[in-house]
Amino acid sequence: MNWLLVILGGMVGAPLRYLTDRAVQSRHDTVFPWGTLAVNVVGCLVLGALTGAAMAGAASSHLQLLLGTGLCGALTTYSTFSYETLRLAQDGARFHVVANVVVSVTAGLGAAFAGVAFAQALWS
């Protein structure tokens, strides 16, 4: 049963990541990977909120598998972040490399903490 929840979450998360990435990136005429940044930050926010809900006893282990492991696991993408950062470095876009790393890590952590705080305020 657990594996089915992960699969179902992944079946939603993977196409959602692709479609969101393409939609966001198509609106920006730049080499900066806005689409990957967007899906990673949203995934961090969702995972943070889910973690806060679980800490407050409001999220079952099944919901954690469905949304945390399945959806967020397929939605977020460290490998694409790494690839795009290396591609920017190879292209000599040093500012974009530094901006991508700093903004991705800072915004991702900030979103995760915000998600936890929101869920704890809601369910505590």
Rank of each mutant, 00 (worst) to 15 (best):
G43V: 08
V97A: 05
T36I: 01
V105Y: 07
L71G: 02
R27L: 06
S104P: 12
V103I: 13
H62T: 14
F81W: 13
L65G: 11
C44Y: 07
F95L: 13
G70A: 03
G43I: 09
G68I: 12
L109D: 11
A74G: 14
Q25F: 01
A38G: 00
T51S: 15
L66M: 07
L37M: 03
V103F: 05
C72L: 11
R22D: 10
L47S: 11
S104H: 10
L88C: 01
R87D: 12
A59N: 14
Y83K: 14
G68Y: 02
Q90M: 10
M55L: 13
S26V: 03
M11W: 06
A14D: 09
H96K: 13
A53M: 02
T77W: 06
G35W: 00
A74Y: 05
G68W: 00
V97G: 08
L86F: 14
L19E: 03
L47P: 07
V102Y: 04
L50K: 04
N100K: 04
A114T: 14
R94Q: 04
T106H: 05
L37T: 00
T85F: 04
L88G: 02
A14Q: 08
A119N: 12
L19Y: 12
P15Y: 05
V116I: 15
A112H: 13
V39A: 02
G35R: 01
T76E: 03
Y18F: 09
A74Q: 08
E84F: 01
M11N: 09
D21Q: 06
A89L: 15
V101R: 01
S79W: 02
